[in-house]
Computed example of a mutant assay.
Amino acid sequence: MSLSLNQTDRPEFFILIGVPGMEDIQIWFSLPVLIMYVLIVFGNVLVSYVILSEESFHKPMCLLLSTLSIADVLLATTTTPKVLSIFWFNSREISFGACLAQLFFVHAFSMMESTILLAMAFDRYVAICHPLRYTSILTNDTVAKIGIVAIIRGSLFMAPASCLILRLSYCQTNVISHSYCEHMAVVKISCSDITINQVYGLTVALLVIAVDILCITVSYGAIVRAVFRLSSMEARRKALGTCGPHFCVILISYIPSLFSSFTHRFGHDMPLHIHIILSNLYILVPPMCNPIIYGARTKEIRERILSFVSPRPPSKSL
């Protein structure tokens, strides 16, 4: 397909390849992608509905989990419908504006999730290290403010990245070797100097992911130190048990994110199709696993979900 440019060397649309080198068989990837997306929407909407509809769950950790669930659905919905349309209908065109919007929201929602995970780590820190001050430090109003900060933080960090793309020229190709508009995938096909874009992208990744991971590590270091000061083994087990779901979510969220970010910049020997598949899994796997982890590990939420999905029939009076 020919490259259509306007006066600023900006293409009217981009062409998304999907999974480069595997175009003939990528339709088979649509089944696991569809299944994961359905699980993401169903699981996260269910968890969020249960928490928001049950007044007993209107407490900071549960409200943060509900916020994370909403962000998970929005993140997956930003990319998955377009990915499936490529796999099913070979619908590879995406307008320049739509590509820029997709790029913005993919990374903004990812940063929002990171902010929420950091807030959840702080919640566990206060609950275990300063239990008597928990209700005064973490209130529902505080959670609402954290949600606003997450939105502002993700938007402010991604707005300059989008503006920096507007200055680039695309005089050689409008074909993106990816299944969605990822920041570096869009930047790399430009024929302009992309040094500023690369530096800004890496700086944001370090400022968000690295800083959040550092703060979470410090929080859990203090938690572990406080837990091992407890005299009762049962108290230690219970305290660590409340952190289990959150710690699992952190691992499945940050490990794929870091791997995807650094391989895109430094993993030149990695086959491109492997990187694209991993990038899609990074978008899908954490949002799919989060409600499963919390539903399985948090007793109150698990019991409420089970009663909602399989309500018990009313008992007959004698």
Results as ranks from 00 to 15, higher is better:
Leu75Ala: 07
Ile277Trp: 07
Leu138Thr: 04
Lys238Arg: 15
Ala127Glu: 13
Ser169Ile: 01
His107Asn: 12
Val224Asp: 03
Ile277Asn: 07
Leu202Thr: 06
Asn6Glu: 09
Asp269Ile: 10
Tyr282Met: 11
Ser169Arg: 11
Ala121Ser: 15
Arg302Ser: 03
Val19Gln: 01
Ser179Met: 02
Ile40Phe: 09
Leu138Phe: 03
Val249Gln: 02
Leu166Met: 13
Leu206Phe: 12
Thr8Lys: 14
Arg237Phe: 09
Leu64Cys: 13
Leu75His: 07
Ile277Tyr: 06
Ile35Val: 11
Pro286Gly: 05
Leu64Phe: 11
Glu12Tyr: 15
Phe109Leu: 15
Ser310Phe: 15
Arg153Leu: 08
Pro32Phe: 04
Ile116Leu: 15
Leu65Lys: 03
Ser69Phe: 02
Ser2Thr: 13
Ala235Phe: 06
Ala127Val: 02
Glu93Leu: 10
Leu318Cys: 05
Leu206Ser: 12
Val204His: 03
Asp24Asn: 14
Tyr125Ser: 03
Val143Leu: 08
Lys299Trp: 11
Leu117Asn: 00
Tyr254Val: 03
Ile283Thr: 15
Pro291Asn: 09
Met112Ser: 02
Leu3Ile: 14
Ser85Gly: 04
Val208Phe: 02
Thr115Ala: 14
Asn174Cys: 10
Ser162Gly: 07
Arg92Gln: 15
Cys181Arg: 03
Ser232Pro: 03
Leu132Arg: 13
Val175Pro: 00
Ile194Arg: 10
Thr203Asn: 13
Ile292Tyr: 06
Phe13Asp: 06
Asn90Arg: 15
Arg153His: 12
Arg297Val: 05
Met184Ala: 06
Glu300Met: 12
Arg265Pro: 00
Ala235Leu: 09
Cys243Ser: 13
Gln172Glu: 14
Ala71Asp: 01
Leu251Trp: 01
Ile189Asn: 05
Leu5Trp: 08
Ser91Arg: 09
Pro32Ala: 11
Thr77Lys: 12
Ser56Phe: 06
Met158Asn: 00
Ser315Pro: 00
Ala210Val: 10
Leu3Gln: 06
Pro271Lys: 10
Phe42Cys: 09
Phe262Arg: 04
Leu164Ala: 06
Arg124Gly: 02
Ser310Val: 07
Leu46Asn: 01
Leu251Asp: 05
Ile196Ala: 11
Val186His: 03
Leu64Thr: 02
Ser85Pro: 01
Cys129Gln: 07
Val309Ala: 05
Gly295Arg: 05
Val19Trp: 01
Asn90Val: 07
Ile148Arg: 10
Ile277Leu: 15
Ile152Arg: 04
Ile70Tyr: 06
Val309Ile: 15
Met111Leu: 14
Ala76Met: 11
Ile165Phe: 03
His268Trp: 12
Gly154Glu: 00
Ala127Trp: 08
Gly21Met: 08
His58Gly: 02
Ala71Pro: 00
Val285Arg: 06
Gln198Phe: 09
Ile86Val: 12
Met270Ile: 15
Val33Cys: 10
Leu230Glu: 07
Val45Arg: 00
Leu31Thr: 12
Leu230His: 03
Ser231Arg: 14
Ile293Gly: 03
Ala159Asp: 02
Cys129Tyr: 05
Phe96Leu: 11
Met112His: 04
Thr115Trp: 04
Asn197Gln: 14
Tyr125Glu: 07
Ile216Asn: 03
Tyr282Gln: 12
Ser253Ala: 14
Ile94Thr: 07
Thr77Trp: 11
Cys171Phe: 10
Gly147Asp: 01
Glu23His: 05
Ser219Tyr: 04
His58Arg: 13
Ser231Pro: 02
Ser279Leu: 10
Val50His: 01
Ala205Cys: 11
Ile86Ala: 02
Asn290Ser: 06
Phe308Lys: 14
Gly267Gln: 02
